[in-house]
């Protein structure tokens, strides 16, 4: 099964934590890549770099900043290909990041679609207050991205009712039903696309069929983040 594991953060981490994560991350990364359970993992740029796109009556409405202004936000994510939730939990509980930050694990509703792309990456997230229908217009939008060599992966996610939050407290694993951020709206789907610049990523968000009813947030990845 395909899962996303969002990292929840409140901003910059203490230097000692960063040093510990940097020290232990390569070995962890190598182990999980070798097992074939972790397909992608990147840190996102901070929320002020985000742009939120809505299209209403055919008019694009573009606002600077993230969809949700919250103290805790999604700081990055991993893409997992695991046998089941237990394996996804095991993979993330071993992450050096989990010693400091919570993970929210959610399944892709209908599996993950993959393409191939190169260039600067952007994360497009659909924010909705209900689980939207990702219909054939969405499929066509993804195909167009793929035809232009801009589609890396993406699809609809299970809603917050399918989420599991994982924390390590005093060395012990704690699991909870539900997301770490409880808001009226949630990330209902995501796509990672490659574009030469932010404006083109915004243009793709404008043409996202779900931007007509919901909101699509565009966020760049952290420039120094590990690939």
């Amino acid at each position: 099964m395909d899962y996303v594991a969002f990292v929840g953060t409140e901003g910059a981490m203490p230097a000692t934590a960063v040093a510990e994560m940097n020290r232990d991350f390569p070995a962890y990364q190598a182990e999980m890549r070798a097992r074939g359970v972790k397909r992608f993992g990147r840190e996102l740029d901070f929320p002020p770099t985000a742009v939120t796109v809505r299209v209403r009556d055919g008019e694009p409405l573009i606002s600077d900043g993230p969809f949700a202004e919250t103290k805790e936000f999604i700081g990055g994510f991993d893409l997992l290909d695991c046998a089941d939730l237990d394996e996804a939990i095991e993979v993330e509980s071993k992450s050096p990041v989990a010693r400091f930050l919570p993970f929210e694990i959610r399944p892709f509703r209908d599996g993950l679609r993959r393409g191939s792309a190169s260039g600067p990456l952007f994360l497009l997230t659909v924010w909705a207050s209900e689980s939207p229908v990702f219909d054939e217009r969405y499929d066509a939008w993804q195909r167009e991205l793929a035809d232009r060599g801009a589609f890396l992966f993406g699809n609809a996610l299970g809603g917050p009712e399918t989420a599991t939050t994982l924390r390590i407290r005093a060395g012990a694993l704690e699991l909870a039903d539900g997301p770490f951020l409880v808001l009226d709206d949630f990330v209902a789907g995501l796509d990672v696309i490659a574009c030469p610049d932010r404006d083109q990523a915004i243009a793709w968000a404008v043409s996202h069929p779900l931007a007509q009813q919901y909101a699509v947030e565009v966020r760049p990845f952290h420039p120094d983040g590990p690939a």
Binding site: A83, P107, A163, T164
Partner: peptide
């Protein structure tokens, strides 16, 4: 219903 739905959707083995 919610509990059973999560077992199926989240892939609880």
């Amino acid at each position: 219903t919610r509990t059973k739905a999560k077992i199926a959707a989240a892939g609880i083995p």
